[in-house]
């Protein structure tokens, strides 16, 4: 059928192999958070956890500042991002509001039925 992704899409990141390879360390850390023991370890000592997964200084800074838009751009896959969101007390819609540059309340006001969450 030929190429499937033929151009950039505004305000959208397409998670391809290059992006996935860039995000390898971040995604590995997030994957570990599927284990309750690793979630506890992260909550207890975030810095030690980031060091153990050999994050770069730039990647560590993105996690420290809860910069979800930056984490996506650094190659964190959205489904991995949800795990670091959860362990830091940020649900999908809070992260989404931040990525849109809105407050949580502003974002909810854009939805048809915002109780469906």
């Amino acid at each position: 059928m030929g190429r499937q992704v033929t151009g950039s899409i505004p305000d959208t990141s397409v998670f391809d192999l290059r992006l996935s390879l860039r995000g390898k360390r971040l995604n590995r850390l997030c994957a570990a958070l599927c284990s309750p023991a690793e979630r506890d370890a992260f909550k207890r000592d975030e810095e030690a956890c980031m060091a153990r997964f050999q994050l770069t200084d730039a990647e560590k800074a993105l996690i420290r500042s809860r910069d979800f838009k930056g984490l996506i751009e650094a190659g964190t896959n959205i489904y991995y991002l949800l795990k670091i969101g959860s362990v830091t007390g940020n649900g999908l819609y809070q992260m989404g509001a931040q990525m849109r540059g809105e407050t949580y309340q502003q974002f909810l006001a854009t939805r048809k039925i915002s109780d469906a969450r």
């Binding site: 899409i9 505004p10 305000d11 959208t12 990141s13 838009k69 996506i72 959205i78 991002l81 999908l92 989404g96 509001a97 990525m99 849109r100 540059g101 974002f107 854009t110 939805r111």
Partner: peptide, 9 residues
Amino acid sequence: HQLQGKRFG
């Protein structure tokens, strides 16, 4: 649906 970037939502 789109769950990331400025086009979230």
